[in-house]
Design a protein around this nucleic acid. Sequence first.
DNA 1: CTTGCCGGGTT
DNA 2: AACCCGGCAAG
Length: 443
Amino acid sequence: MSTGKRLAKRSIIGTRVAALAEDGLYYSGMIQAVKTPAPFPENNNCINLTPNTRYTVRFDGGKMSCEYRDTELIGPGFRGMTGVRLRHGQRVFLTHNGREVRADVQQHDHHTDELRVQVHTPGAEAPVELKKKLDEIRLLESRKSARLADVDTDFARLADMAGDRRRASATIEVPSHHMQGSRKRGPSSSCDLGYGERDDQMNECNAALVLMSLSCSPNSPRPSAWGSRSSVSPGASSSSGSSWRSGTPSPPPASSSFSDEGIAMDYEDIHPRKKRINSVVFVCTWRGCGYNTNTCSAIEAHIRNTHLGPKKEGDSDHEEEFYYTEREVAAPAPPPTLSHRDMCRPPHEDPEYQRQLVGSYRQGLLSIQNGTARPISIPVTHPWSNTHSPKHMRLSAASGSPGSPGRRPRSDNKKCRKVYGMDQRDLWCTQCKWKKACTRFGD
DNA sequence: CTTGCCGGGTT
DNA sequence: AACCCGGCAAG
């Protein structure tokens, strides 16, 4: 199908990322939904790359999810570690003795980007303290092996902050410490994903979404709203800038492109109205109640008081969030050119470039948002930004007709090599390792 | 020069 | 298969 493209694109949904949580630590999670409030979800190489796109990240080990901007997410396709400031206690992963170990940050010297970390070496009792450079450090597990089935204290904290007492299983350290020679990684089946647990999580994730959308449905007046994009509807419980935009009419089903599976997320992007945000109104979606207000706290208070009743002790589940939606009262925006939808990729690619572009703009937005939003304030202050990169159509010409022999055109996408660098070669997708066409960032 | 990756080799 | 790598071609 898609011309000469070998492998299906992957949706960004499901991508593993790390994001800063309230406690100042990064936690790993998975992108659950993408919302692009700004006009042009994609195709807009850079200028439009809507710094407003929000990614609903569901943190591992809990039902907690928050929204972030791409610039706040760390992971493949998003920003890298550069410039990240890690706090004491941050759970990180690094390659030690040829295998991935987890560690806790003791101290991070922002100038030299050196960190003192305490490594939990499987097999060893006492944690070892190491000095590592920031770029040797990952916030995500590169693979989820049983032995790394980590989730302990840190996640407990996470859970706490979500008001969710759920605690993931205790650590199961593997006693033995076998380094299997050069083969670092399991079967390549998972390499594609890069993260083995993806499927599981996706399922879980979808299930959660279904539940969420169910609980969101009080908003009956617009039955069709959810319709078209069925499956993964917007990431429910979000937070601050939360709420999904499904309230507005959904776009014509599957407009334009639907080339392959990677596209799913693109539609997430489409959902949002093509407007430029001017101001936001929070609308109560409780059946029959049309109450609206322009502050998040007000709407929540309303919901809490009017519909939910007094909060129970220990109930900090932000339940209110399920019952309101945020609507943008927008000023008209220039019509986007939604061509090439099928070629679009997840919005991220050239952090450097984006950084400059969005930098200041973003800051403004951030502050605006912080003003109104409550739940998860994101104390991120990186001068970052990334997202789209100039993306060109690669459709035709290049190497001739589809199916023609000849080399595939070079794609401008990042490749594992670029993203992870030589020193993290074990994070590359199998194909990259073999000097084959990249399957992870491939087009 | 670097980089992506094809084609073909080896294990 | 899984893996490795020479070497071509694009940039």
